[in-house]
Design a binder for these strands. Structure first.
Length: 815
DNA sequence: AGCACGCCGACT
DNA sequence: GTCGGCGTGCTC
């Protein structure tokens, strides 16, 4: 076994072959990190994916420089998982590696060199570069690879390091442990001296021209004297938004207040009361029993529980079971901001044995979690999709909550994969059970459950036997004709909202479109404002008073006159959530109306603040985009209004109906959680539309049956498999020609009706790249594997055309 | 992905 | 005469 296949953190196909030097053969194992030279002057941290003794013939192999781990950092199950992902989603292992690892575990620049202890160096036999390096190390002890570039020519770096390692003079040092800095929390207190020596009137006199500082000083003083044992966190001062950092700085500069830091063990054991898990209800017990049966049959489970049925409850129970068996749990969520409830409940129970892993952690925090998982020090890991790649030791259960959520398969991050499907496969490799849970399962999962590939567990009643919300459809056309509307709201909806507000309850208004107006159009010449980078009209945001491109983020000021014909006759068309918010505020001037969308939630803590406002019932009406369908579990929301429901359906996507159903149902679940008198009002021009009609009767099985029939009719998943290939280039004709060419190759191998396109993408230009798409509709089953191989062949054939190498190509399997 | 090599326009 | 633009090719 003197050759190794190494995966490098590069967006390159496959792995690279390296020779393992004699002295490393006994130590090297699959799953370890190694340092390898690459392309003349670079050193990368690679992962050993395979060991073999087949000498390559077509190129000269380089040698592994050194091994970075004493035991594999990627467990065998993960190796299989990476290979599966790469195979199934047609993506490179390098891409997966980049995605899976925190950067300080893979970056070459984080690698340091040091002198071996107790050595005598024979300077006579060293060349100039080797001498420089040794001398530098004698002064600095540790040297970063990028620093070496300062005194050794790039091309000689590797040679120099290699020979010094061979001579046993130097070695590789992993600096991660030392660079990891425990998180510190800032606290404030009144300066001790001040308390002893100065009298209060003097201080207040000093602050008489700085009212806020004075207030802040008094606030801190009061808190501190009230109970000296409770420390005052710096962050809590700013929570209200009344004080700012500048006020505190002022006090610190005057030496009145001191800032100090206390190291926080992020995973402090929870000190509050331990919450006993409430007993399961009868329905929940039945569901749990069914899950157990499913597991015994070796099946994974789809837990379809209507909103407020207490799915979390069941998860907790299964998590407990799993831990009692001595195994660990991975709990996946679509996004970390929604973790509040589940996290709090688990924290109370598992304290120290709980871990978090998600996109918002810093690199050190990620490495810390990696270490703990490797040491088997985490029983329950709560995380987002990237948590699938942690080096789990003894995984017994994976829970995928809100399995239908599209955040599990974002399109913009590579490698492209669906975390829900990946979790099923990972569970299989670990021999772990998997529960997919949702109030509105994806059509694919539902279908799999019906086909018995998943055990299907349906939890039909809300916890505590609370009634399900009631739906009402309002024909907006009729309302308009009989003049019973005000703007975008029918008088009936306005009435219903009034009623709820009178009872001091709360209302949600859903409108799933950002901004104020979709388009600003010139009445005179028809000019509309296009984004300069993309083929998209820009959306008008009144709150920020600017035009935004929702695809590339480009911003521009709102034109006062038409840039083309100088007419002042500009018209705003297409209703956005800001406009609905404005309308509602005007309709209910005596109530607190808040807006919740990505634009208004961008500020730090904006979400937390609004969350509390709603919880404290300061907010009467929340107007928001789909964001409000997630995580807002409050007890006093009694009405959900969807003024322009049709906009949910008119999206060019075969999943539009599924999405509309999911969104409406999810947001409905916010209403009447306790009272059981929740109501949903849907305003539409098409009350006869099947989706609305089926939602109204509130029988999920019928909705799925309808959607499945439609999908079957038009040959869409889950009855077929879709692969979408996207080609991008700065020059339109080049992108066009390339995609035509790829299309012709694909048609050569695949039946005509499998290949659709190429076509201009819906957004023909994005970030200055022209995009073309080819959609492959492939049959399921054995045929699929066969066809996919042919797709692979076609893609390879395409890659051989050198003229098209500058084309950016992306493949989305299970689009 | 990065990085070098190589071939054509605007500058000291 | 050179600096630097990005098209093309290669990396075990």
């Amino acid at each position: 076994m003197n050759y190794a296949q190494i995966v490098l953190p590069l967006n390159l196909k496959g792995s690279f072959t390296y020779k393992v030097p004699e002295d490393l053969i006994s130590q090297i194992e699959v799953g370890m990190r190694v340092l390898v030279p690459f392309g003349g002057k670079k050193i990368y941290t690679g992962i050993v994916f395979e060991l073999h003794d087949i000498a390559p013939e077509n190129f000269v192999v380089k040698e592994v420089i050194s091994i970075l781990d004493d035991k594999p950092i990627v467990p065998e199950e993960q190796i299989r998982f990476w290979n599966w992902l790469s195979d199934y989603y047609l993506c490179g292992l390098g891409e997966i590696y980049r995605f899976a690892f925190p950067s300080s575990l893979k970056l070459e620049s984080e690698t340091y060199l040091k002198l071996k202890p107790n050595i005598t160096i024979d300077f006579e036999n060293l060349d100039v570069n080797e001498m420089y390096l040794i001398q530098a190390l004698e002064v600095r002890q540790l040297i970063n690879l990028t620093d070496i570039e300062a005194f050794i020519p790039k091309k000689d770096i590797i040679k120099t390091i290699n020979s010094l390692i061979d001579l046993q003079y130097i070695e590789i040092d992993e600096k991660i442990a030392e660079k990891y800095k425990a998180k510190e929390v800032a606290y404030v207190k009144i300066n001790d001296e001040v308390l002893k020596n100065q009298n209060l009137t003097e201080i207040l006199l000093q602050l008489k021209n700085a009212k806020k500082q004075k207030d802040l000083f008094l606030y801190i003083l009061e808190k501190q004297t009230e109970d000296p044992d409770i420390l005052i966190k710096k962050s809590e001062l700013f929570e209200e938004g009344y004080f700012g950092n500048s006020h505190l700085k002022g006090l610190v500069e005057r030496n009145l207040v001191e800032e100090y830091y206390i190291q926080k063990d992020r995973l402090d054991s929870y000190e509050g009361e331990i919450e006993e898990i409430e007993e399961l209800s009868e329905a929940q017990k039945v569901a749990k029993g069914e899950i157990d049966v499913g597991f015994e049959e070796g099946k994974n489970v789809l837990l379809h529980g209507v909103t407020s049925s207490g799915k979390t409850h069941i998860y907790l129970d299964k998590i407990e079971d799993c831990i009692n068996e001595g195994k660990n749990v991975l709990f996946l969520l679509p996004e970390i901001s929604l973790t509040k409830q589940i996290t709090q409940r688990l924290e109370k129970k598992y304290g120290r044995k709980l871990g978090f892993y998600h996109q918002k952690l810093t690199d050190f925090e990620r490495v810390e979690v990696w270490r703990r998982i490797r040491q088997n020090d985490v029983s329950v890991l709560i995380g987002t999709r990237n948590a699938l790649f942690l080096p789990y030791q003894n995984l017994g259960l994976i829970v995928v909550d809100e399995e239908h959520d599209s955040a599990y398969r974002p399109r913009e991050v590579s490698p492209y994969f669906n975390a829900k499907d990946a979790a099923l496969v990972l569970g299989n490799f670990y021999g772990a059970n998997v529960i997919l849970g949702s109030a509105t399962p994806s059509v694919e999962s539902y279908y799999n459950a019906r086909k018995d590939k998943l055990a299907y567990v349906f939890l039909e009643e809300r916890f505590g036997n609370v009634n399900l919300p009631e739906y009402e459809l309002i024909n907006f056309k009729e309302a308009q004709d009989s003049k019973k509307v005000s703007g975008n709201f029918s008088l009936q909806v306005i009435d219903e909202i009034k009623k709820v507000l009178e009872e001091k309850n709360q209302v949600i208004v859903l409108h799933n479109r950002r901004g104020y107006a979709n388009v600003v159009e010139c009445e005179t010449c028809g000019y509309v404002n296009y984004c300069s980078n993309c083929d998209v009209v820009m959306t008008y945001h009144k709150a920020a008073n600017e035009m935004k491109c929702h695809y590339c983020g480009q911003r521009a000021s709102k034109p006062k006159t038409c840039p083309k014909c100088y007419s002042e006759n500009l018209n705003e068309r297409g209703v956005g959530v800001e406009q609905i918010h404005e309308e509602v505020s005007k309709l209910f001037p005596d109530h607190e109306v808040d807006r919740m969308d990505v634009d208004s939630m961008r500020k730090k803590f904006a979400y937390e603040r609004l969350y509390e406002k709603i919880e404290d019932r300061e907010t009467d009406i929340v107007v928001g985009t789909q964001m409000i369908s997630k995580g807002l579990d409050f007890n006093h929301i009694e009405l959900v209004a969807i003024p322009k429901a049709d906009s949910l359906l008119y999206v060019q996507d075969f999943r539009a109906e599924e999405r509309a159903y999911q969104l409406i149902t999810q947001v409905s679940g916010r209403a009447g959680r306790v009272s059981g008198k929740g109501k949903i009002i849907i305003q539409t021009f098409n009350p006869e539309h099947s989706v609305f009609q089926l939602i109204k009767i509130n029988k999920p099985a019928k909705v799925y049956k309808y959607i499945l029939t439609e999908r079957q009719k038009f040959h869409y998943p889950p009855f077929t498999k879709l692969i979408m290939i996207e080609l991008k280039h700065r020059k339109e004709d080049k992108a066009n020609r390339a995609s035509q060419f790829l299309g012709s190759i694909l048609r050569k191998y695949l039946p005509e009706d499998c290949v659709l396109g190429p076509e201009k993408a819906q957004i023909a230009r994005l970030n200055n790249l022209y995009q073309f798409q080819i959609m492959l509709k492939l049959p399921r089953g054995k045929k699929y594997d066969e066809y996919k191989k042919l797709v692979l062949t076609s893609l390879k054939e395409f890659d051989e055309i050198t003229a098209y190498q500058s084309i950016k190509k992306e493949v989305f399997v299970d689009f």
